[in-house]
Design a binder for these strands. Structure first.
Length: 198
DNA sequence: TTCAGGATGTACT
DNA sequence: GTACATCCTGAAC
């Protein structure tokens, strides 16, 4: 499988968010083991005009500094004091934009991901746990062992990257409003959330 | 199946 | 001090 090139991320953020659906996210652990999952839900955040983005209006702080980096950079931040959110920086360097990875399905080494999430093997998960395995940004980061220590990584490196997979059938792509941004005024209605159904 | 409430720490006003 | 791109639990239905 081929790693997505930097030019993939150096494009319109909303388009990148849509096209990340179905692609394989690969996380290489310090011991060399690779955790793989298929991206099933994303959201676009565009700093120059999107009040839901941490870097709205090009606001530059210690936290948002990563959003101004080159496309293909990993942006991870802590939310609600105990969860992390994984993002991919998009568009040209200096444009603070990113795609939030909100959900995925396990593809390889599900036992290790299950251990991170629930402290048990995949086969020992309950039916409820299987139905809500990696269906949220905090759950995904927990499952893949991602924290702020991985903030700033390059997706063209080996620790974390995305591989090209067959594009999903457009029939299965859903579009809607983003989650958890009620404070963002007019931006709450932007249809910048994408997910795969079935 | 849905829903309210609490956990928890950092960034920023 | 307040808000936060969330998740889990337990109770009611």
């Amino acid at each position: 499988m081929k790693k997505l090139p930097r030019t993939f991320y150096d494009r319109d953020t909303v388009q990148v968010a849509r096209e990340l659906l179905g692609q394989y996210l690969v996380r290489t652990l310090p011991n060399g083991t690779q955790l793989v999952c298929r991206i099933t839900e994303t959201e676009a955040y565009v700093g120059r005009m999107d009040k839901a983005c941490h870097a709205y209006g090009y606001r530059r702080t210690a936290r948002t500094e990563t959003l101004f980096a080159k496309p293909g950079t990993v942006y991870i931040y802590l939310i609600y004091g105990m969860y992390h959110c994984l993002n991919f920086v998009t568009e040209q360097e200096g444009e603070p934009c990113a795609v939030l990875i909100r959900g995925a399905q396990p593809v390889k080494n599900a036992d290790i991901i299950a251990e991170n999430r629930f402290g048990c093997k995949y086969e020992d998960m309950t039916a409820y746990q299987r139905g809500h395995f990696l269906d949220g940004p905090g759950k995904l980061c927990r499952g893949l062992g991602l924290t702020r220590a991985e903030n700033g990584l390059d997706l063209l490196g080996d620790e974390l990257f995305v591989c090209r997979a067959p594009s999903p059938d457009p029939e299965h792509i859903r579009t809607g409003k983003r989650i958890g941004i009620d404070y963002a005024q007019e931006a709450v209605d932007f249809p910048w959330r994408f997910w795969l159904e079935e």
